[in-house]
Design a protein around this nucleic acid. Structure first.
Length: 285
DNA sequence: AACCGCAACAACCGCAAAGGG
DNA sequence: TCCCTTTGCGGTTGTTGCGGT
């Protein structure tokens, strides 16, 4: 720790949602220099953010290997069980969910699972451990309507089923005999992976930057395993919501071309992953 | 069509732990 | 050993979008 060489002038840091430009700067910087002293990143990357904000953005959003979108039933069970066991140790819980961030797990719990657990507890006290089995009585919220961030709602079976780790298949259990909650649907976006890979500019955040397989091959974009969503997930001031299509830009290699054209060795990304646990097939590069 | 309430989620805040000088 | 800085974590807030009225 302690990075005294990273002295930075006091400045007015920008707050709020990150713009595509900022994301790009941060991504470019880390791809180029790897992870280091976060407090030094903003200055070096030319960002008017504090290091903390950069770190958060990277970990929760830009980091490679992030799996976005709806939680699978399996993941949900893990969260429920571990929360019962560990309490609100989100970082520890997230460790058991490759590709998920503590923030994401926390949000998911607070906005959704907690209520369901409480409801289930209300009807069946003292059986937190049975939550997962309890959940097998209802068509799952996971497997019905999913909404992409552009607001359109699509009917789809669990897109996680497309994940290589989709061992849970597409069975559709959910907690307790709970009425279907339309709002709950909203959280299930079509994301599969957060695709942090090269974007050459703000415009690259648009749908137009999807990675068609042709692009993938021509640009040597070849994730080795699993399915890459082709979107830069995120919302920018709510005005730039993208359509989160699932791309089929999957491949089996370990190199990708990043902005500008240089090869980017994913196998050497360990330093950049920053503790990201690549224990799932999904995350093997 | 406008308004309101709710849900989801990104981001911020504050604190504690870790580590170097 | 103490102090200072950075990092990591959990709680909380703010913003946005959607559905209902």
């Amino acid at each position: 720790m302690g990075c005294r060489s990273c002295d930075k002038p006091k400045m007015n840091y920008r707050k709020g949602l990150w713009s595509p430009e900022e994301d790009q700067r941060l991504r470019d910087y880390i791809v180029k220099h790897g992870l280091g002293c976060w407090s030094a990143v903003p200055a070096k990357a030319g960002l008017q953010r504090n290091g903390k904000s950069c770190r958060l953005r990277w970990i929760n959003y830009l980091r490679p290997g992030l799996k976005r979108g709806m939680f699978s039933q399996e993941e949900e069970d893990v969260v429920i069980n571990l929360q019962a066991k560990l309490g609100n140790k989100w970082s520890q819980i997230a460790m058991h969910l490759p590709g998920r961030t503590d923030n994401e797990v926390k949000n998911y719990w607070n906005s959704y699972l907690k209520k369901r657990v409480m409801q289930a507890q209300g009807s069946k006290p003292n059986n937190l451990g049975e939550m997962s089995s309890l959940s097998n009585t209802e068509p799952s919220l996971h497997h019905q309507h999913t909404k992409n961030s552009s607001g359109s709602t699509t009917t789809s079976h669990d897109q996680d089923a497309n994940l290589s780790s989709g061992s849970h298949g597409i069975s559709a259990p959910a907690l307790a005999a709970e009425p279907f909650d339309h709002h709950v649907q909203q959280q299930h976006k079509n994301f599969v992976f957060s695709d942090w890979m090269p974007a050459t500019g703000p415009e690259s955040y648009s749908m137009s930057t999807h990675w068609p397989s042709s692009t993938a091959s021509s640009c040597n974009v070849t994730p080795s395993h699993g399915v890459f969503a082709d979107q830069m997930s995120g919302s920018y001031g709510g005005a730039l919501h993208q359509d989160h299509h699932q791309s089929s830009a999957a491949g089996h290699g370990a190199a990708a071309t990043i902005a500008g054209g240089g090869y980017f060795d994913l196998l050497n990304m360990g330093d950049i992953y920053g503790g990201f646990a690549a224990t799932s097939d999904d995350l093997l590069f």
